[in-house]
Design a protein around this nucleic acid. Structure first.
Ligand code: ZN
Ligand code: ZN
Ligand code: ZN
Ligand code: ZN
Lengths: 168, 168
DNA sequence: GTCATCGGGTTATGATATAACGCCATTCCC
DNA sequence: GGGAATGGCGTTATATCATAACCCGATGAC
């Protein structure tokens, strides 16, 4: 709850991020006839506790704590699978973790700038990167289905700060 | 050994790939003063059994079989860590697996075209992709340390074949 | 020879993810 | 409404991937 490791990116009102994400999820699922159940919605909210990718088991702990009773891994994984399918959440392969999508709605994969110091992860969708990959693959006769771009490095904040917050 | 799932890419003499990789590793490590021990060399050879990324435990099994006695996971992971550090092997994050680098020597990360049907994985180093990522990150003030590009899709062979070989 | 360094063996444990089975609520057809 | 199909989710067990902690012997510097 008040865990500082869950602090969002540099001083913004993160409750807005969460509220927006949930509202978009509600309307998107409604428009698609997808069932955003109470459990799935809660898991989405827990993914959005920060802008850092969160592991399934971290979410599981939060969920168990909220419920009082311990939840099973499958419960969380099934919810995450749904959220990923709906494009509400992206999986960060290099971290085995999940992060909320700030702009769901259209099918996209995005590219991720993952700060190795604070963990905050920015999703971008850069046409040049997308096209370079598409063309590079096409030049070799390769048919792209799912491009994965995850860039580790240092976010602007952590380049100025000497030794910032610890990992989530 | 004769496991068809280990068959290399469409009809080439894979023993050359392996021999070349080992020779390059020998000379590279010699020139750097890095110790390519018998164990590490054997693990490199096992990574190169095919052009598909192989999991640490698959390598572990091969190794145990060769030795007669069962090996421990750490044995393999330590060897893989060394090989990755030396740039002789790349880790494919989205598969939790390792693949031999066809062009070690200069520090590079490469981009990977991973066929979802046959598993064969081609490493490329496309300047346009590299530069697009560098510029896209720079535009957002992000300092890149380690770009990861893993593209899932269909290789040329598997686009023509209807239902090809199974997964490794 | 003595010491520091490093590779690697051994055992145990942690972290991530899925299989197999079944119950029950919702929905859809009639 | 009755009855069947579907899908969401609980439960238990297990698979897969990765590291911690500790020790020991080989190697090379001095
Ligand atoms: Zn926020
Ligand atoms: Zn997105
Ligand atoms: Zn080959
Ligand atoms: Zn390479």
């Amino acid at each position: 709850m008040t865990d500082p490791s869950l602090a969002p990116a540099s001083g913004h009102d993160h409750s807005h991020c969460v509220a927006d994400a949930l509202a978009r999820a509600d309307s998107l699922c409604a428009s698609r006839g997808a069932r955003l159940t109470a459990l799935r919605r809660r898991v989405l909210e827990l993914v959005w506790r920060s802008h850092r990718p969160r592991g399934a088991y971290a979410i599981l702990e939060d969920l168990s704590q909220q419920e009082g009773k311990p939840a099973a891994p499958l419960t969380v994984y099934r919810a995450l699978d749904f959220l990923v399918e709906q494009g509400l959440v992206h999986r960060i392969e290099s971290l085995n973790a999940y992060v909320g999508c700030p702009a769901p709605g259209l099918a996209h994969t995005g590219q991720f700038l993952v700060c190795e110091s604070c963990g905050n992860t920015e999703e971008i969708d850069d046409p040049r990167i997308r096209e370079a990959i598409r063309d590079g693959a096409a030049a070799r006769g390769f048919r792209v289905r799912l491009p994965t771009v995850e860039v580790r490095g240092l976010c602007p904040d952590c380049q100025s700060r000497p030794r910032p917050e610890t990992t989530p």
